[in-house]
């Protein structure tokens, strides 16, 4: 039997297709990025090796730091606004009873199954100064309703709202599942001891949800770093580079500014930052199991 389990030929056939595909589509391109990151390649024609110049430039590039700042802002928005609301909603939902729970869960998650392309353009229309939903709502409350939501100064907040809105159902669902996994006996014991709803939530639900919160916070930070598609369609990083994010910025550098080499250098740093952030978060939140 040992022989069957260590048959090299069989192992090779099992592992090879996946490893080949992964190498071809993920690992090789990253190595290629490292290579092009050391060049001044424009995307066409010849190019020179320029050592670490791209990286030195990046350190001084305001837009690169703006992209990082925006990722930090977005992560903060997820953690400070989206997640507390999602936990509270999940805790309330848990008390609703079967039919209402199913209905609300279905509604909350619905935006997540809709393509980012649709979501981004839908919000572009919601923010539209002429017929947009948001200005029409503002008018109902007596405002002029002429705000340019995606203009200078407000754009980054408008982008954050879309992303917080879009991801709300996903976060809620995971917290809801976590709360459902809490043993109901604990709640009964708390009720017998005379704990009110608030105490039960703070003393039982929240502490037991710690592992779920940690997973969710990690996911939120990573997705804030990786953000691209919504911004690409909603603002393209503009006005100026106010709503720039790393992935969008490297794309823009390569395909609009024809600085393919520089774009690749940003790619390399982008990958490093994502790996570093994941590692760091797993150090901050060590797994008990």
């Amino acid at each position: 039997m040992q022989k069957a389990y260590s048959n090299k030929k069989i192992i090779f056939t099992l592992v090879f297709p996946g490893l080949l595909m992964f190498t071809f589509a993920v690992l090789a391109p990253i190595c290629l990025s490292v290579y092009y990151g050391f060049t001044d390649f424009s995307g066409l024609g010849k190019f020179n090796f320029i050592g670490f110049k791209n990286y030195q430039e990046m350190m001084k590039d305001k837009n690169f730091w703006m992209s990082l700042r925006n990722s930090v802002l977005l992560a903060a928005g997820f953690i400070v606004i989206q997640h507390p609301l999602a936990i509270i909603t999940a805790a309330l939902l848990d008390r609703m009873g079967r039919k209402a729970e199913g209905f609300f869960r279905c509604v909350y998650f619905l935006p997540n199954v809709i393509s980012v392309a649709v979501i981004a353009y839908l919000w572009k229309f919601i923010y539209n100064p002429n017929f947009g939903l948001l200005n029409n709502i503002a008018k109902l409350f007596g405002f002029s309703g002429k705000t340019n939501w995606l203009g200078t100064g407000t754009a980054i907040w408008s982008v954050l709202i879309v992303l917080i809105w879009h991801g709300f159902g996903w976060g809620m669902l995971i917290y809801y599942t976590g709360i459902k996994n809490i043993d109901p006996v604990l709640y009964e014991a708390a009720a017998i001891d005379g704990a009110d709803n608030k105490q039960t939530f703070l003393r039982i639900t929240l502490p037991l949800m710690k592992p779920v919160i940690e997973v969710n916070v990690t996911l939120a930070v990573i997705s804030a770093l990786k953000q691209m598609e919504t911004v690409y369609l909603l603002t393209a990083g503009g006005p100026g580079n106010e709503t720039q994010f790393m992935a969008n910025y490297l794309y823009k550098q390569a395909f609009s500014s024809f600085r393919y080499g520089y774009g690749n250098a940003i790619s390399v740093i982008f990958v490093l930052i994502c790996i570093l952030a994941t590692r760091l978060l797993s150090k901050v939140f060590p797994k008990e199991a």
């Binding site: 589509a25 993920v26 090789a28 391109p29 990253i30 290629l32 990025s33 092009y36 990573i222 770093l225 990786k226 691209m228 992935a247 490297l250 794309y251 390569a254 393919y260 774009g263 690749n264 790619s267 390399v268 982008f270 990958v271 994502c274 790996i275 994941t278």
Partner: peptide, 10 residues
């Protein structure tokens, strides 16, 4: 951990 969009250019 690797962001999809980092592979777009290469």
């Amino acid at each position: 951990m690797i962001p999809i969009h980092a592979t777009l250019l290469p």
